[in-house]
Design a protein around this nucleic acid. Structure first.
Lengths: 230, 230
DNA sequence: CGGAGAAGTAACTCTCCGGTTACTATGTAC
DNA sequence: GTACATAGTAACCGGAGAGTTACTTCTCCG
C-alpha cells in the first residue's frame, strides 16, 4: 500500500505463478463461497469479516457483493451449500443392500467418520443453532432437501424387526438423534471436554475408543429386549 | 440525550420505584456478571456488546471495566462461574445411596432435565467450543474444579457389575460422554433439527419422548451383554 | 464538619467493519 | 477498432463498538 504504481504490483502478485490471471466469473464466485465457508466456520456468523473473506478468496468486496450479496446472503448461501453436500453424502449410503445389523453398524460408523472428516460441518451447525436456525428457516430450498436418512433408517429397522434382530417399536427419528448425538457431542465439545477431563480423548486412541463405544451403544440398544419399566 | 440537566433525569429514572438508589458495590458487580452471562449466552462471544451488558446491568461501562475488566476478562469470569454452578449441581446428585440401576436412570434423567432447565449452559458451551476452549484453558481455577461425576459413575458401575446388573468393562468417561451426548445434541441442535425434520420434536410430547428414549438407550447398553463382535 | 477515596456518569476517541461509489481493465460483437 | 457489457480495483463513508477520560456524587472516618 502507498507505493507509487501500486495498481500494477497487485496485478503482478496475482501473476506470480506465471499463469495469466484472466477473467473467470465462475472461479471467482466459487472462490468467494469457499472462502466464506472457511471464515464462517472459523469465526461464526458475528465473528466473520467480509474483508477477510474477500482476501481469502483472492478477490475483493466489490466482487463479493456483486456475485452473492451482503453478509446475510453469503451466510445463507454457505448454509444451503452445506446441507446440499450433506444430503448428497447421505444418499450415497445405500443401507438397503446390507443385512440390518451391518446396515446399522455402517450408519453409526459413517456418522462418526463423517463428523471427523468434516469438522466444519459441526461448527456451522453450532453457529446456526446459536442463531436459533434464523437463516436456515429462511432458505426456501431447504424444504426440498428432505433428508432421505429417516426413511432409510425406518426401512432398516423394519427389516431388522422382521428378521428378529432388532427390538420392536423403535422410532426412526429418535434413533437418528441418538446416533448423531453420541458422535456429535464428542466432536463438538472435544475442546471443553479435554480441558475439564482428559486430553487423551483427543488422541487417535481416544477417537477409536469413542467410535467403538458409539457403535456398541446403538447396537446394544437395538439388539436387546426392552427393559421392564421401573 | 442532550436535554439541559440530563444528569438528574437519569437519577430519577433509577428512583422510579421510590426506593433510593444507594451505592452497593456487591450488587453492581453481581448485576454486571448476570447481565454479561445473559449477553454472551444470547449472542456468543463475538456478538456480545459491552454497551448492552452495561445497560442490562443497569450500570455503565466505567463500572464494568472497574469491577471485572475488559471483554475477555468478563467472558472468562462468566465461564468460571458457570462451571462452578454445574459442579455444585453434580455434587448434589448423591448417586451412591441408590441401587445401581436406579442411580444410573437418575443420572441420565438428571442430565436431560438439567440441560432443559439451563439452556444457557448449552449455549455457553457451544460458544466456548467454537473458540476451541481458548478461555477455559486459561482459567487456572478450572483444574481445581475437578468434576466429581466421573468418580461417581465409576462407583455406580462397579456396584452394578458386582450385583450382576451391568455388563463389565464399561469406561466411565465414555459412558459419561454418551449420557451427555444423547441429551445435549437434542437440545443444542433442536433449532436446525426442527427445520430439517419435524417441528414436533420441540413439543412437550417430543421432549418427553426424547427423555424416555435417552434413558432407554443408556440402560439397554449397560444391562445387556456385549454383542459378539462382527 | 470536611476531605479522601470509592462509586458512578457521560462524553469522547480511535479503530474497525459492512457496504458503496467512482473508476479502470478486459473481452467480445459488430 | 470501437463501443458496450461485464470483471475487477481501491478509496471512501457512516456507524458502531471497545476502551478511556474528565468529571460529579456519595459515604464514611477522624
Amino acid at each position: 500500500m502507498g507505493e507509487g504504481t501500486g495498481r500494477m504490483d497487485q496485478k503482478n502478485a496475482a501473476n506470480a505463478s506465471g499463469k495469466a490471471r484472466t477473467r473467470d466469473p465462475e472461479r471467482t464466485e466459487r472462490n468467494i463461497l469457499i472462502a466464506a465457508r472457511e471464515e464462517f466456520v472459523e469465526y461464526g456468523y458475528q465473528g466473520a469479516r467480509i474483508d477477510r473473506i474477500a482476501e481469502r478468496a483472492g478477490s475483493n468486496k466489490r466482487m463479493l457483493y456483486h456475485y452473492v450479496g451482503n453478509k446475510d446472503a453469503l451466510y445463507a448461501r454457505v448454509l444451503l451449500e452445506a446441507y446440499k453436500d450433506i444430503r448428497k453424502g447421505e444418499r450415497q449410503l445405500h443401507l438397503g443392500r446390507l443385512q440390518p445389523r451391518d446396515a446399522m453398524e455402517r450408519l453409526v460408523g459413517f456418522t462418526f467418520d463423517h463428523f471427523q472428516a468434516n469438522p466444519w460441518f459441526i461448527r456451522l451447525l453450532s453457529t446456526e443453532n446459536m442463531l436459533r436456525a434464523r437463516y436456515l428457516a429462511e432458505v426456501p430450498e431447504i424444504k426440498d432437501l428432505h433428508s432421505p436418512i429417516i426413511m432409510q433408517i425406518r426401512e432398516v429397522l423394519e427389516a431388522g424387526e422382521a428378521a428378529g434382530d432388532f427390538r420392536t417399536g423403535v422410532d426412526p427419528l429418535q434413533l437418528y438423534i441418538t446416533i448423531a448425538g453420541v458422535s456429535y457431542f464428542y466432536f463438538s465439545n472435544m475442546y471443553t471436554l479435554s480441558v475439564a477431563f482428559n486430553d487423551d480423548i483427543k488422541s487417535e486412541q481416544g477417537r477409536a475408543d469413542r467410535r467403538a463405544h458409539a457403535i456398541d451403544v446403538v447396537m446394544s440398544f437395538l439388539c436387546s429386549k426392552p427393559l421392564a419399566s421401573k
